[in-house]
């Protein structure tokens, strides 16, 4: 095997990213994943366990893990932390009653050692609903400005219309790429 081939192989491996998508149940995680991949979103069932999806975007190979957000499954989230490059935290922007729960879960997650290096993208989802809180209101409610340990960004989006999904993911990829692919 020539040197060039070896280098190419290495490079290819390097351009893989592992993204973990978490959030309370009903936030729209599975819908985001499927919409991003251009699939039908009208038949999605509540997630029992997890979905894994691998897709190519801008020459990156993305391994996306979508893990169920039900209370009884949250203690299993830990099983998926290993070697996570990016954390996508999805919020139902119209669910005012669970914002506090949402803030606590995110706060606990950011203390996890194995997620220490990960970039955080917060999707303020369901912006198409008339009663949805704006991304700035969500930012305040989740006290995102207090996060000093991770690179983070919040993007308002709708998994149903697809609005801003690409914007969010592109930001995430750029941030991760700048961090881990600087060697080449």
């Amino acid at each position: 095997m020539g040197l060039l081939t070896i280098l190419k192989k290495l490079k290819h491996k390097e351009r893989e990213m592992r993204l973990l998508m978490l959030g309370l149940d009903n936030a729209g995680k599975t819908t985001i994943l499927k919409k991003f991949n251009g699939e039908d979103v009208s038949t999605i069932s509540p997630t029992l366990g997890f979905n894994i999806k691998t897709l190519e975007h801008r020459g990156f190979k993305l391994n996306i893990w979508d893990v169920g957000g039900q209370k009884s499954l949250r203690s299993y989230w830990r099983n998926y932390f290993e070697s996570t490059d990016g954390l996508v935290w999805v919020v139902d922007s119209a669910d005012r009653l669970r914002l506090e729960d949402c803030r606590k879960e995110l706060g606990a997650l950011l203390l996890e050692e194995r997620l220490a290096g990960a970039t955080l993208l917060v999707f303020a989802n369901k912006q198409d609903l008339p009663g949805a809180l704006s991304k700035d209101a969500i930012r305040e409610a989740l006290t995102l400005d207090e996060i000093k340990t991770h690179h983070w960004c919040i993007v308002g989006c709708s998994a149903v219309t697809g609005e801003n999904l690409l914007t969010g993911v592109d930001w995430l990829l750029d941030d991760i790429a700048a961090r881990i692919f600087t060697a080449d």
Partner: peptide
Amino acid sequence: TYFVGNAAVHVRASAEQY
């Protein structure tokens, strides 16, 4: 006004939620 943690969140909420 929603009190979440230490932060009070003001939202132009009600007119939109039914």
